[in-house]
Amino acid sequence: MYAVETKNLTKRYGKTWALKNLDFTIDENEIMVLLGPNGSGKTTLLLILATVLKPTSGQAKVMGIDVSTQSTRVRQIMGITFQESRGFWRHKPADILRFHASVCGVPKTKRDTLIEHILKDLELWDARNKLFMHLSGGQAKRLEVAKVFVHRPKFAILDEPSSQVDLRGKRKIWAQILKMREEGSTILIATNEVREAEYLADRVTVLDKGKSVVCDTVRQLKDSIAGGDVVELQIDTSDAQNLKRALSQIEGTVKITNSSANQFKAHVSMAESWVPRMTDVCYRSKARILSIRVTEPSLDDVFLHFTGRTLRRTSDE
């Protein structure tokens, strides 16, 4: 059984299609990252799985439970961090977490210790007596994420969990997310931050215009781009042209250029296999390798490859 499964899931707002016949699965105990620009349908999918929105048609199940017909049961095993912080304006962070923990059934004996630990870990302890309406954007976002960390649900949904948070805070949030997965949670994260996706994802689903474009592990996605890895070489050789020809015949080479007699730039598939072959070719050609620099494609490149557009540009649109 999948932790999450959607079949032909469709959501329309008037004439706008937010999701179009989406088929999507998440395995148990997996971190799935949804990557896509604004308006790609990420948040809509999360809100449907969180039972906050009703699908227009199709089916979505969480742990085998239908989100439309058994929404209360889904809510009992799921927790969500919203993109925008949702808090009671006149409550303090500790009160908000205490309310959340009690409603979500966190045992009373563990509640206060857990809340204190999470508040300290996310550096909210000093702000614990501020009213929610007086928190900064970053503090409010960390509080929003803290709800899920206190709850530790079987299925956790996080919508842009580290947006508005500084780098130090991001690291702490990511560490907590990984810890939750270790403890057995299945996690679905929506983000348009490539670094976050690369750091956390077991698998990535690229969403564009309400459709799943591709879904795979980060490694597989990167490897699926022919010539995605770039290997920059500095080689001491007396015959650059012959060496270039020999290098271009190595399996996995897509394109090779040389900017000067001993500077080569190779666009290759799977650099980890290509580089040993390249050293072998150089050895046989009596060429001395002075330096090697390997750059693998980012998920932004993956998005560009599969959609023809960059994440950054489409997010700004």
Partner: peptide, 21 residues
């Protein structure tokens, strides 16, 4: 009205309670 405006109602709709509840 405040809960609707601030989006708190969506948070409450995600809590383990039925909409009628």
């Amino acid at each position: 009205w405040l809960a609707l405006r601030e989006g708190v109602i969506q948070y409450e709709l995600s809590l383990p309670v039925s909409t009628q509840g």
